[in-house]
Design a protein around this nucleic acid. Structure first.
Lengths: 230, 230
DNA sequence: CGCAGGGTTGACTAAGTTCAACAGTGGTGG
DNA sequence: CCACCACTGTTGAACTTAGTCAACCCTGCG
């Protein structure tokens, strides 16, 4: 259930700039001088927490990727979010007495920093910047999810998939780490494994993208672009 | 462009308990003693703001319903949220220097309370409860949108529609105000007008629901329930 | 070696979209 | 007051898309 690998020191943490505490001003740094967190690693496929659990922990991802999934009554899964390094998750615990609203699963070997809700709340009372940063992250999250919803609600399967790949890869033209199975893609985009496979196989044949052992390359960005806005 | 109907006094506002300021403790009420807002009304179909506009205003809906819409490149619309009385919207303005991320349109005659971002920010510095309330609203919004996404991603058209109607009506068995056109339903659920119409017409014929001039009744909740979880 | 799991492919089917026609309704102007 | 128009909702038929079911390949692993 996750291997403890040591205490983290927020002040000197290499990913602090990308983390929640990246918002602190020089003068506020003493606030987290003695702040420690637990750093934990998980193997691919391991569950970090389950929907409904009540641990008082909030997480920052340091390395790797994680998926957050919701299940409907019939046990079908919808992936609602993909977590990247620097992202905060489990943050719904900031609502009084709530439990986790997703199941969080590691897509690859990940390193996570655990932060206690209570300690974070103490900190919030001392720094308005932290509150602002939390609000901004939450509001950005709303927008991203609305964007996701818009793609799923409006686009055809190939456009959805093309949109996602472009988002994932960004503007890099080198191979990019791609730890996402066909199944995950399908559950993220509201499709079936087969449709996802058909499109990607087709694009691989026509050379638009290429794949080799968890690495993805977009060879013809323009082609994907035009599919995604068709 | 909205008719100004007077100043609102937050302290004595009838919907304060449901509004953002419902979070204030007795002892904090003096904070808003002299707080005033502009109360404005809009007619059905009027636009309250457009995506990209930069007014420094945040809104609380006092009466009626509003839809928030996003448009994709081809001009197709996805309704991402329906606003009910007491809800806060335009709140993305709390992110530094951002613009509105939706187009807000009145579905019926609405009464809205305009609040300046700057004034709200002043207030945030004086009350941690306000920050907490904003965070909770933002996080709840994330969850609702994720829920919406899950329905759109996983359910078949009839289940989506049934789910929506049940959500809308709640557990009331009396007729409920229903100011939502077939077109809006379709744009909210990621369907076409025709599919929505076919299902509702069918359900009206079989007596599961009934409709008369913007009022909706669910006659057979169990039937809808079983369709929505099929 | 044999097995499990992920990925691919094909044939078929079901679901929903598209296009088109038409009904009902409310509003406008002569 | 009625004729006309615009708009919303409904329905049908043809068509397209994506889902379903099933077979098979490939890879990694015990």
């Amino acid at each position: 259930m996750g291997k403890f690998t040591g205490k983290g020191h927020c002040l000197t943490c290499p990913i602090r700039p990308a983390s929640l505490f990246g918002c602190l001003k020089e003068s506020e740094l003493p606030l987290i001088e003695h702040f420690q967190t637990r750093v934990v690693t998980f193997e691919p496929g391991e569950i970090i927490y389950n929907e409904g659990e009540r641990l008082g922990l909030i997480y920052t991802l340091r390395e790797g990727h994680i998926k957050l999934t919701k299940f409907n009554n019939e046990g079908n899964a919808q992936i609602v979010r993909l977590i990247r390094p620097g992202d905060l998750f489990g943050i719904e615990k900031l609502i009084n007495d709530s439990s986790y609203h997703h199941t969080a699963e590691a897509l690859e070997k990940v390193e996570i920093c655990q932060l206690s809700v209570d300690k974070l709340n103490d900190l919030r009372e001392q720094s308005g910047n932290i509150n602002q940063a939390i609000i901004e992250r939450a509001l950005l999250q709303v927008m991203k999810t609305e964007n996701h919803l818009t793609q799923v609600g409006l686009l055809k399967s190939d456009a959805r998939l093309a949109w996602f790949l472009m988002q994932w890869v960004g503007d890099k033209s080198d191979p990019v780490s791609f730890p996402i199975s066909r199944r995950d893609l399908a559950q993220y985009l509201g499709l079936t494994v087969e449709t996802v496979s058909r499109h990607t196989a087709q694009w691989k044949r026509s050379g638009v993208i290429s794949e080799s052992k968890n690495m993805l390359t977009i060879n013809n960005r323009q082609a994907l672009e035009s599919i995604s806005t068709k």
